[in-house]
């Protein structure tokens, strides 16, 4: 097992903040690898110990990851000038929110770059639809300044709605999804 995965397991009892920091490091490492095909074969040993009995087996996540990356590239190209961060920083921010949602093992997922400098995700798993809008703070490459707005529907019933700081919102979303047997493994 790679060293950076081993560290996560060793410090798992040391609180949410450490988890978040490690998660960012992990994302950075994955971004450096920049290879979608090896992504889940790498991450699986890490996630599997925290997801038993929750998510359905990861099957189409690789396909969705590639689709999200392609959708981002195409749409970002059309709106490049509206953003003020460089390509690398923006793509990293997109990967962060994309990856959190992919960990839910969605059945379907889409990404749209909006005219408000945000990324709008629609994620569907069973009868749960998760809408996430990631407002990118364009002045700084710090995730904590980004905002997320999340709405969760079960069928046609709205069961969750929250907006705020990126990581605070992810932390609030996690237990809601867990009620519907959906986990974001790094936060489970």
């Amino acid at each position: 097992m790679p060293e950076y995965f081993q560290k996560e397991i060793d410090i798992s009892a040391h609180g949410q903040h450490l988890k978040q920091l490690l998660f960012k490091m992990l994302m950075a490492k994955i971004a450096t690898d920049n290879c979608a095909n090896t992504y889940y074969s790498t991450i699986l040993p890490f996630t599997s110990h925290t997801t038993v009995g929750l998510n359905t087996p990861i099957d189409n996540s690789n396909t969705l990851l590639i689709k999200m990356e392609n959708a981002w590239k195409k749409q970002y190209e059309e709106r490049r000038e509206e953003f003020q961060l460089n390509d690398y920083e923006l793509t990293e921010k997109m990967r962060l929110s994309t990856d959190i949602l992919l960990q839910c093992s969605p059945d379907k997922m889409s990404l749209e770059v909006t005219t408000d400098k945000s990324i709008f995700y629609t994620t569907i798993k069973n009868d749960i639809t998760i809408y996430v809008e990631h407002y990118i703070e364009v002045r700084d490459f710090v995730d904590d300044l980004d905002e997320l707005i999340v709405t969760v529907f079960r069928g046609n019933e709205r069961v969750f709605n929250y907006g705020g700081n990126f990581w605070d919102t992810v932390n609030k979303l996690q237990p809601v999804l867990q009620d519907y047997s959906i986990a974001i493994p790094q936060f489970a």
Binding site: T114, Y131, E133, E147, I149, G163
Partner: peptide, 17 residues
């Protein structure tokens, strides 16, 4: 700006549905 974000988000969610 924050309130407008919420309105825009709700418009996207509601109208897309």
């Amino acid at each position: 700006g924050k309130v407008l974000q919420r309105m825009a988000n709700e418009a996207r969610v509601m109208l897309s549905r």
